[in-house]
């Protein structure tokens, strides 16, 4: 089947011979975009987080075939080693990673999460569903879908907090 989708601004027209290919495996094995990681392949770790039409999701739990016409952003589309995005810079400065394997997912997730927060979306730790404010616990909860066994969590929270505060109040 034919599949057209845009990844990091580049349009791809693909002949997808097998509908079983997940969005994650399409990125990693067919488009060579291995920045997006496979930690569990079942939506239980968040390492495969990408943006689809601006929203974060687990690319392992979606078939590539379901993304006809979609705009996908992976970590490679967030910034490059020579031109880091503020979130990536903050992760480096705060040592928000160790082995680096969950890191692309954390960064993509954090990038989208701040937009969700800015849009006023509540979370399970929001005291008031209608008055969501930035706090360490809000960041922790909203980033809990990204497991990190090296457990850089406190540094991840610091990095995100710094970016959030630079970008203005949520």
């Amino acid at each position: 089947m034919q599949l057209r989708l845009t990844v990091n601004g580049t349009e791809h027209a693909l002949d997808l011979s097998d509908p079983r290919v997940t969005l994650l495996d399409l990125l990693r094995y067919r488009l060579g975009l291995t920045g997006t990681k496979k930690g569990c392949d079942h939506g239980q770790c968040g390492a495969c987080t990408v943006l689809v039409n601006g929203r974060r999701m687990n690319s392992c739990l979606s078939l590539a075939a379901m993304h006809e016409g979609d705009e996908v952003t992976t970590v490679e589309g967030i910034g490059t080693p020579d031109n880091l995005a503020p979130m990536q810079e903050a992760f480096v400065r705060h040592d928000g990673f160790q082995c680096g394997y969950c890191t692309p997912g954390q960064i993509v997730s954090a990038t989208a999460m701040l937009k969700e927060l800015a849009a006023g979306w509540p979370s399970q730790v929001s005291g008031d569903l209608d008055a969501v404010a930035l706090s360490d616990d809000e960041i922790r909860e909203r980033m809990s879908g990204n497991l990190c066994r090296c457990a850089a969590y406190p540094n991840i929270v610091e990095a995100i907090r710094e970016v959030a505060e630079q970008e203005g109040p949520a």
């Binding site: 975009l33 291995t34 970590v75 910034g79 490059t80 080693p81 990536q88 992760f91």
Partner: peptide
Amino acid sequence: DRPDGPQKVTGTATYAD
């Protein structure tokens, strides 16, 4: 800061698979 940091945060560090 880790010299390998920029690679890790941009997905350009390559792992086994």
